[in-house]
């Protein structure tokens, strides 16, 4: 199920502005990869280029290659819609569809492909996805209630359930805990630990303890100044990066000496 991602010589532009420059990395399957770095270093932009979500912004474009199992996502014939079904995403702030119930939210992605999906089969998927997101016990009695009634942490787990319901190969998380309290954050971190046996997970985080806790590998991005593109400084096993970083910039950032 989980797939390897190979990124080579990736440059990301907004119009004439180069936001991310010359990134090459390999993201291993069945593991959590954390992207860390100061604000504006392009890590979120980079993350969004992994499922072609950055194209939503006008004038954004990409040069280079992102391959999942050898298949380049940016080949002209590739359909971005198909890419996004393959690479799920969880956003900074929980974003369940406000007019849909909990059940409908989880089923939303499935309904797109299989409009006749109904009844027991669909209920099974919804239950499995909610269980997968550690949310089932909390919502099983109110599946038909609006999702907006849930707490922030529950909503975020609902979004994770919605993302895994369509069985993606990869799960991207863009600072999934930044809007949550510590207890909800812990619940999501536990969940990531469970999910990595089945998915390739890439997470952007500002919280270095979180990166150290949840990830197997860590990539450090930074910018050399305003108007400069973000670059990948180094990438390695998480304990390695945090205890013996190879670059001075990484060490400065991790130890809090950065800006």
């Amino acid at each position: 199920m989980a797939k390897r991602i190979d990124v080579s010589d990736l440059n990301i532009f907004y119009g004439d502005f180069r936001a991310v420059a010359d990134v090459s990395m390999t993201i291993e399957p069945r593991s959590v990869t954390a992207l860390i770095g100061p604000s504006g270093c392009g890590k979120s932009t980079f993350l969004r280029s992994l499922n072609r979500m950055h194209e939503v912004i006008p004038k954004a474009r990409v040069e280079g290659k992102v391959a999942i199992d050898g298949q380049d996502l940016y080949e002209p014939a590739v359909d971005p819609v198909a890419v996004r079904r393959l690479v799920g995403m969880v956003f900074q702030r929980p974003n369940p569809f406000p007019t849909m119930s909990i059940h409908e939210n989880v089923a939303a992605g499935l309904r797109l492909n299989n409009r006749k999906a109904k009844g027991d089969a669909l209920d099974d998927v919804v239950e499995r996805s909610l269980r997968g997101a550690n949310l089932w016990d909390e919502v099983k009695d109110r599946l038909d209630r609006p999702a907006s009634g849930l707490s922030g942490g529950q909503q975020q787990r609902l979004c994770i359930a919605r993302a895994i319901a369509i069985e993606p190969q990869v799960l991207l998380m863009d600072e999934p805990c930044s809007a949550l309290d510590p207890i909800s954050t812990l619940a999501i971190e536990d969940l990531m630990h469970d999910l990595k046996s089945r998915y390739t997970i890439v997470i952007v985080t500002h919280n270095m303890q979180q990166a150290a806790r949840v990830s197997d590998r860590t990539a450090f991005f930074t910018i050399s100044g305003a108007g400069q593109p973000g670059r990948l400084i180094e990438m390695g096993e998480t304990p390695e990066i945090f205890s013996r970083p190879g670059e001075k910039a990484t060490e400065d950032y991790i130890t809090g000496r950065f800006g």
């Binding site: 199920m1 014939a77 359909d79 198909a82 393959l86």
Partner: peptide, 24 residues
């Protein structure tokens, strides 16, 4: 969880990647 439905295949059972599935 044991009852695998056609909608939710078990890990490994997914079809090979087909991102280019027909597009005009």
């Amino acid at each position: 969880m044991a009852t695998a439905t056609p909608l939710l295949a078990e890990p490994g059972a997914s079809p090979p990647l087909r991102l280019t599935r027909g597009s005009l």
